[in-house]
Design a protein around this nucleic acid. Structure first.
Lengths: 235, 235, 235, 235
DNA sequence: TATGAATGAGGTTTCATTCAT
DNA sequence: TATGAATGAAACCTCATTCAT
């Protein structure tokens, strides 16, 4: 064996992180289609790189992540990354951007789906707990919080694509709630951030203190919904 | 012992750092006070280093900060940093720790004001707006959010010294509010995080989107207090 | 001995670079000529590669030239170059060699014109000005001057095929001139380099300083001929 | 045998090149002065780097030279180079510039020193043979010829500081020669390059063909002087 | 035969850390 | 105690070369 060159002189690593995805040379694209064409293989590799990058960036932050580790984890050579991404920063930004697409879908789908604002918020909370908290999507959120200030274009993108849309959706919901008399505090309308704040804090909490003091996120979000709607919940 | 270069440009190590020197605050005033003793000068340098480190770390994150820049900003030589701190990581952790002391003081002082829970929260909000938002203290908060996951000992310290105490204080306040009938939703007691969440979100918001979409933090926090107390505010 | 990454699976290694294919000039014209045979197409590609290589090598030098750029300029894929040339160095050497053939032809043809030595030299000068200065051939000359020291076999080839022949021709010319009494300084016979030196210098000058201080090469070479023949020129 | 890394992006070898200057830790500055101060040591290191760089660049060209080799040869660490020079290119340009200073001194001193133009030229030739041909200075000249086209600012510098001055000096000399009737061909005045061309060619010749066909540079330059002055030399 | 995605050695450059002064 | 020149391990990125298609 070769000893890949990890922590210089036996310094721990602090971050369990191996198991290169052996790159499944025989894996066909998701559909059971014909044998993998070159294009399909390339797309798979690109995905593997992005997935590996997510793990590494989320675990170490942008500056401390080594592309060699990303490559190893993706099961490709270092140079291969550069066939798909101009440089480390492009990979990082692309990662966040592409990872956001399903996140946006998930979360903006929720409010649109239902009748009552309260039910919509509860569905949002449930979706958030299931699909964000403790998942890669949560890592991405924390990544943006952590690195956003250093990547203005990324912060702007995130604001434009996720934050402003999400908040606009929230405002719609709140308007309905106010109109129906379910929400009494009309000021919330000006600050839809108040509605989402506990979800953000939950993501951060789990990242920082999850090991020390796990948080019952679902219960917390429900308590928050009760607060907004000014009533006891039945559950 | 050898251990020449621990984490290259890198992060972790994860174990505890050194105990801060007793940091004599005995300032010689600018006017011709008693001539600065060696100890005083040393303490001043240490402070200068910490202050410079705060600026640099807050602006670039841990990994991307160069000690040379810290030294330059502090007006000392690179080597001097190592007379005061074991290594980059020790400086970083020390910085956060010492910077937290006044932060803790500030914020836990507020709730201590006794009149009404609502007044206490409003005072907390006002203090937060004035002393945290847009200040170095806000930078520290964001720094912890951004780097905490990579420094478990720091997260633990922060949880123990700030978070758990702050939340305990909040719980006391909420209890009083519930006892007085000012707060109707008793579940908040289980999740004092809900009370602080908007403040956290405000700090993050200003860091990421402050330029794009400034947030009226004071108004938002007041709206949140209204929400908690289930009534319109008079101001 | 290790020989880092050569032929990965014990493949023989492929001996020295090939002889240029007979380079059928039978261009298929754009209009519907006879359909290009495979051999013709291959020869055309090879020529395209060499032509592209000349441009790139002349512009950047050997080490700084990227085969990808050569391929792009030649309109072929990177791998195709390796179907025609063993490696980068073989392409380079081949380029210089094949490019020299017409150069040799051109210049040794000139002295062959028989009338008077002076007329021969003037014809040489004229040919040089028209066919070398400011052309690809000039680039090749500079390329040899620049890289020759790093490619002894190339320098040797150049010396054998071009320099020694050219100088021998010059000596013949000079002998005639001396015999006719047109050249009084017999020592030039020992150093035919003296006759060619200004031409070399002109090529270098144009390459380095042509932009800053253009040189009237033709006039300079004529002045030099006057010098050799010890008289004013009539033109 | 180990031969660890042949010529990676690079060129050849073709250039015996080791023996790091063991950096003489105890060597005082040239004068037998006091023990080396930090500044003196720093200057010595800088000189060692420049000297090593000259050897390497002259032997391999700019692109193919590895700074690691320069460092090794200079007896310093790789990083040390960057304490003295911004990057590889800065080192290269600085090297040529500083190396030119003594060259300029040498050569322009010569013509100024004497009475008759012929004697001046002969002294120039002698100086050139002794101080340039086969020396580091010759390497620099070839380096400029080889790389100048890729470093326009360097070519310009060389033109301004060396070429234009040298040619102006030559013109003065020629004027005197013409005035005295020693030089009959007045056209040379327009092309002082003609006077220097053989020297340039000699440098190139020795670099490319010196091993194959050594050139008696002194004799050649004398023959050239005879040519210019239209007479037999006595020596 | 032609392609170009993939490889990975190796190059330049950075920067935490040391240590002679 | 303070300095900052020096170190050298790594990081990012390039590009000659290979090989499956």
């Amino acid at each position: 064996m070769i000893k890949p060159r990890k922590s210089p002189r036996g310094v721990p690593a602090a971050h369990a992180a191996e198991a290169p995805r052996s790159a499944d040379k025989t894996h066909r694209s998701a559909s059971g289609g014909p044998k993998p064409t070159r294009a399909i293989r390339a797309a798979e590799r690109r995905e593997a790189i992005v997935a590996a990058a997510l793990d590494e960036f989320a675990g170490r932050g942008f500056a401390a992540t080594r592309l060699e580790d990303v490559a190893k984890r993706a099961g490709v050579a270092k140079g291969t990354i550069y066939l798909h991404f101009k440089d480390k920063e492009a990979l990082f930004q692309e990662l966040v951007r592409t990872a956001l697409v399903p996140l946006i879908g998930r979360l903006t789908a929720a409010p649109a789906a239902t009748e009552s604002p309260r039910a919509a918020l509860e569905m949002f909370a449930e979706t958030f707990v299931q699909e964000v908290i403790g998942t890669k999507r949560g890592d991405i959120l924390r990544l943006i919080v952590a690195e956003g200030a250093r990547f203005p274009s990324l912060a702007e993108f995130y604001y434009r694509e996720v934050v402003s849309r999400g908040l606009a959706g929230m405002q719609k919901l709140i308007e309905i709630g106010i109109a129906r008399g379910e929400i009494s505090n009309a000021d919330i309308l000006r600050f839809p951030q108040l509605v989402v704040a506990p979800a953000m804090v939950a993501v951060i909490w789990q990242g920082l203190f999850g090991k020390l003091a796990p948080l019952d996120v679902r219960a917390m979000l429900h308590a928050h919904i009760d607060l907004i709607f000014g009533e006891r919940r039945t559950t």
